Amino acid sequence: MRLTSLSIPDVLLLEHEIFEDERGFFFESFNEKRFANVAGVKPQFVQDNHSKSMRNVLHGLHYQIQHTQAKLVRVIVGEVFDVAVDIRRNSPTFGHWVGAVLSAENKKQMWIPEGFAHGFVVTSDSAEFLYKTTDYWAPEHERCIAWNDPAIGIKWPLDVPPVLSAKDQQGVLLADAEVFP
């Protein structure tokens, strides 16, 4: 496993050693001991989520203000552009974002620690997205920052307006959002 810090060093891109031949492929998508040795983090995952979305569906930017979640995310079908936004008010990268293409083909994963809002847009016909979380979903503590907040300035790879859920249409600007100290 190779870890690369993105422009916000706490967000990591994971690339795995893939064993592939004419029969198919194998890789170890998570190993607690190796992750702790390489990333210096020993997450305790409590929930796995699996979603499927169509092209141009945009999810996010989501986070929980209590029962905060770190996430390890990956795509098993299709491709997405995955984004993490630092919402730790005292961080030197507060309000900054990082993004990466995650796909079934490249098999990359992204580690998004607590204190970040997360979102993604589907860039293939459809995508299946898996993510492990370090705390349970708590809808009463879930918050959403507007995907298109100009203060954040995410450069989403979209040629048309995204397809948004009702919740995501109600996202607030970072300036008005509850954030982490």
Score class of each variant (00 low, 15 high):
Arg2Ser: 07
Leu3Gly: 06
Thr4Lys: 14
Ser5Cys: 10
Ile8Cys: 07
Val11Lys: 01
Leu13Tyr: 02
Leu14Glu: 11
Glu15Tyr: 03
His16Ser: 15
Glu17Asp: 15
Ile18Tyr: 02
Phe19Gln: 13
Gly24Met: 13
Phe26Cys: 01
Phe27Val: 11
Ala39Trp: 03
Val41Ala: 05
Val41Phe: 04
Pro43Trp: 11
Gln47Val: 03
Gln47Met: 09
Asp48Asn: 15
Asn49Tyr: 03
His50Met: 06
Val57Gln: 04
His59Asn: 06
Gly60Trp: 09
Tyr63Ala: 08
Gln64Pro: 07
Gln69Phe: 01
Val75Asp: 01
Val75His: 06
Ile76Leu: 08
Val77Asn: 12
Gly78Ile: 13
Gly78Arg: 13
Glu79Trp: 01
Glu79Asp: 04
Asp82Thr: 06
Asp82Gly: 07
Asp82Ser: 11
Asp86Gln: 04
Arg88Gln: 14
Ser91Ile: 04
Phe94Pro: 05
Val98Tyr: 08
Val98Leu: 09
Ala100Gly: 05
Ala100Trp: 11
Val101Cys: 08
Ser103Thr: 08
Trp111Leu: 10
Pro113Trp: 01
Gly115Trp: 11
Ala117Trp: 01
His118Ala: 00
Val121Cys: 06
Ser124Asn: 14
Ser126Glu: 15
Ser126Met: 14
Phe129His: 12
Thr134Pro: 10
Ala138Lys: 08
His141Ile: 00
Glu142Cys: 11
Arg143Trp: 01
Ala146Tyr: 04
Ala146Leu: 09
Trp156Ile: 09
Leu158Arg: 10
Asp159Glu: 15
Pro162Gly: 02
Val163Thr: 11
Asp168Lys: 05
Gln169Thr: 08
Val172Thr: 06
Leu174Val: 00
Leu174Arg: 01
Asp176Met: 06
Asp176His: 12
Ala177Asn: 00
